[in-house]
């Protein structure tokens, strides 16, 4: 995006970059949709399926869900700070969002280590296979989001990204909120139902 285009972009304008991110998110959502349907189908047709609440640590995952929701708020605050040209707040909120993402990954790694220790692996059962495929695919998205936001944060610190009208922070935010939105669905369908 050149400087002239950046200067023209104020508010929530529909630019090629934003539409491009949305098209990517739609295709990514379809992939998650396929994985969720595979999980539901295998569960419905399986003769033995564990009660998720008896195998999985719901309070720990609920904490992780709150962490991701909080990181969505910090992200939206970062977008607002970018729009108002408050660089200090932008750095602070982006840093908090990256920290939230790292925290989520750390809790997920802790959860996995306990589940593997208890005998739930990718090849131990259909439940294990679908559970790890879905949650690790989402975890890979969180990891990508942390990298993406870290690069944006680096650009802000160097003064290259984050001027009022620059949509790159908002577009990165779209990806991060999408990761949060998908987790809301995974938490419900895999952990609670």
């Amino acid at each position: 995006m050149n400087a002239e285009a950046v200067a023209e972009n104020t508010g929530h304008e529909l630019t090629t970059a934003k539409v491009g991110m949305w098209i990517f998110l739609v295709t990514d959502a379809l992939t998650f949709g396929g994985l969720l349907i595979a999980y539901a189908s295998l569960r419905a047709w399986s003769t033995s399926w564990p009660v998720p609440a008896e195998v999985l640590n719901i309070p720990l995952t609920a904490f992780n869900t709150f962490l991701l929701i909080c990181s969505s708020v910090t992200m939206v605050m970062a977008v607002t700070a970018c729009e108002t040209g408050d660089r200090q707040k932008l750095v602070r909120w982006l840093g908090a969002t990256v920290a939230g993402g790292c925290g989520f990954l750390a809790v997920q790694a802790y959860e996995y280590s306990h589940l593997i220790h208890d005998g739930l692996t990718l090849s131990s059962s259909l439940f294990g296979a679908t559970f790890y495929t879905l949650t690790s695919f989402h975890g890979a998205h969180v990891f990508s989001g942390v990298l993406y936001l870290s690069i944006i944060l680096g650009g802000v610190l160097l003064g290259r990204i984050g001027k009022p009208g620059d949509q790159r922070v908002e577009i990165a935010g779209l990806f991060w909120h999408f990761v949060d939105l998908i987790w809301i669905l995974i938490f419900t369908f895999v952990y609670l139902i």
Binding site: L14, T27, A29, L30, G34, I37
Partner: peptide, 12 residues
């Protein structure tokens, strides 16, 4: 854009 966003959920 809203319609585009609901598409994958409706299809699923």
């Amino acid at each position: 854009l809203g319609l585009l966003a609901t598409l994958p959920f409706l299809m699923t």
